[in-house]
Design a protein around this nucleic acid. Structure first.
Lengths: 238, 238
DNA sequence: ACCGGAACATGATTTTTATCATGTTTCTCA
DNA sequence: TGAGAAACATGATAAAAATCATGTTCCGGT
């Protein structure tokens, strides 16, 4: 988690503009100020960005890359709780709650990340009503998503949940240029850790979806070839 | 959800003092102000306080009683997502996210509830840093709890989850005067809807816990007679 | 390029849990 | 207070999913 000063300095002004970042709400002057209170760093695929139980020292702001938030269950099996992408903030829950991290953050691919000074961020959030509301919105949405996940885990079978997870990945990271391939590559085990099932069951269901032409598999790349059927298979509420 | 003006007016000053309420942070002047912007009402056991998809008109503040927040899964089965008690606020997520309710709130017993005007509450929250931070803390804690629930559903078997649910009820509502009986009465079906399992499995496991002297059953009352063993059975992380 | 480990895949088996069936108890309210 | 309904209980069965076993493919590092 050390900050390497050699990393290229990203400007908050260019980074926040046009992105869905929570900081796109700030004006140029505020972004300049923000720029002073951050440092930039990069993480290689597989690298730990922060660890469960650590105290947050700042807010992570993802310039680009993909990150998973996960935690180990009582028997050591991993559970993926959230997925993060460029423009997202990371580690904000612990910061706002004045709490320790309750998940590990691991880079799913090489990622470029800024760290905003904790007390600067907190005073900015408290002094800027728009930002404050955006943070409430963000955490509220995450809570809603988590509670929808609870319902899904309680009431859906593994087939439905695997289909749902693929749609979730699509919703989070979108498609590649071909408009069909999900723009993130997880191992079967990671997908299982997201779905909350065994790796074998995940593999079997992916094969099944492949056979029944809902998806096409090419290594870790998953192409959704029949979105409508896949949505039906997921038995979505909405 | 109608407010009956005939209900006795509860004073925010007496209500907030000494409680764990988020409003115990306010000074007397602010509480007086709050008092003006609220109305009081009561709900009978089983009554709907608000419904999924409705727009929030205010913040509910529980004077006393017990309330469940639940939602129906894709096949109509209910999932209990949160439990609320006297001193708690209710419906705050939707308010802060400017969103519709995503669960139903139903009184588990006769409850006395105040409703605080939406825009008054929002401007109070935005103008009072302490309150604002307390709200961040509250929603962060709820998110953490939800994510722990996700891990539990993914990785624990039904036996562990039933044991965990009993400990959760104890943590939420405490014991009756005897120091052993969980201070809330849920039907077996409601307990199943909290655990995320079938009613039959819940009944079977309660019977098993009863036989192995972890608990004692008397109607809907559940007495925890061997907290340590029950905790072990729950296979808790911490 | 090739060695070795990790990831992927699939079949067989076992375990867990839901569902179905049926009977009993408890509660509600006319 | 007694009839009917709802809740509780438990056994039998079926379905779902995990686990175990084994083989194959892929991939990174020397």
């Amino acid at each position: 988690m050390r900050v390497k000063p050699s990393d290229p300095i990203l400007s908050c002004l260019t980074c926040a503009k046009g992105s869905h970042s929570i900081f796109s709400l700030l004006d140029n002057e505020q972004l300049e100020e923000l720029n002073i209170h951050k440092s930039c760093t990069t993480f290689k695929k597989g690298q730990l960005i922060f660890a469960e139980n650590a105290l947050p020292l700042g807010l992570f702001c993802i310039n680009n890359g993909k990150i998973k938030l996960s935690t180990a269950g009582p028997d050591g099996k991993e559970q993926i709780l959230r997925l993060v992408k460029g423009g997202d903030i990371l580690g904000y829950r612990s910061l706002l709650a004045n709490d320790r991290y309750h998940c590990n953050a691991v880079a799913l691919e090489d990622s470029s990340v800024c760290v905003i000074d904790k007390s600067f961020f907190m005073s900015l959030a408290m002094s800027n009503q728009t930002l404050c509301l955006a943070l409430f919105k963000k955490i509220s949405d995450d809570l809603k998503t988590a509670e929808e996940h609870i319902v899904s885990l309680s009431q859906k079978n593994v087939r439905e949940r695997v289909a749902e997870a693929l749609l979730f990945l699509k919703a989070t990271y979108g498609f590649e240029a071909d408009g069909q391939t999900i723009n993130v590559q997880l191992s079967r085990e990671e997908l299982a850790d997201l779905v909350g099932t065994s790796t074998e069951s995940t593999i079997r269901l992916l094969s099944e979806f492949n056979t029944s032409k809902l998806i096409e598999l090419a290594g870790k790349k998953i192409k959704i070839t029949h979105l409508e059927k896949l949505t039906k298979t997921a038995n979505l509420l909405y």
